[in-house]
Amino acid sequence: MTTFDPSRRKFIQTTAVSSGAVIAARLTTEAEAKSVLQPKQVTEPAKINILLRVNGSEHQLMVDPRMTLLDALRERLHLTGSKKGCDQGQCGACTVIVDGRRIVSCLTLAVMQEGHEITTIEGLGTPTNLHPMQAAFIKHDGYQCGFCTPGQICSAVAMLDEVKAGVPSHVTADLTRPPEMNTVEFRERMSGNICRCGAYSNIQEAIAEVVGERA
C-alpha cells in the first residue's frame, strides 16, 4: 500500500514555480480555442416545433433544443411554480409529474417531453381550490421560505402513488412484500427534495395527515 507523494506530482511543481512570482496560466485548451473559430459554433441550432401537454392544456412551442423542460415551463409558459434551485438535479425544487411519475424537470429537454402528460404545481391546485397536500402543508407549516415547496408538494403527491403502486425504497425492510405507508418510508422517498429552511419534520406531518385522510 502506498500513498501518493504530492511533491512528485507534476502539477505541484508548476505551482511551486508560481509561488511568489506571477505566472500566466492559460486555462483553456487549444482544442477549445480552435473550436471557437469553427463556424458551426456560432450558428444557432434550428428551433424545433413541439406540442407540450401541461396541466391538461396543449401548447404549441418553437423551442431551442437546448431548452430544458423546466425553462420551457417557466420562461415560455410562465408556469413559474417549478423552481430552478440548482439546474443540476441536486435539489428537487423543479420536480414535476410526467405521466404520473415525479421527475426533475431541469435534467430533461423540452423536446424530449412531447407526447407526455405533464403536471406542475399549478395543475394540482390553486389558492382558492387547494389540493389536499397543499392544504396539509399550510396546516402543518411544512415550508418556510416557500421556494422548495412546489417541488416538495409535487414530489409528495407522486411519492404516495409510488408507495401505493408497491415500489420499494432503500428502507423497505422486506423486498418481497409491499412497502408500508409510514414516515420512515416517506423520509427516505422525499430525500430528493432539499429544504434548506429545514421544514422536514413538518412536511412529514403534512404527508402523514394526507395519508390518514386517504386511509
Binding site: 428537487g92 421527475i103 426533475v104 409510488e162 420499494p168 432503500h170 423497505t172 423486498l175
Partner: peptide, 19 residues
C-alpha cells in the same frame, strides 16, 4: 436479484430513478 434492487434504491433520488 435483491442486491440489484437494493443497489438501485440506494442511488440518487426517487425523481432521478424515474428518469
Amino acid at each position: 436479484y435483491a442486491v440489484l434492487s437494493r443497489a438501485l434504491l440506494a442511488g440518487a433520488s426517487g425523481q432521478l430513478r424515474n428518469q
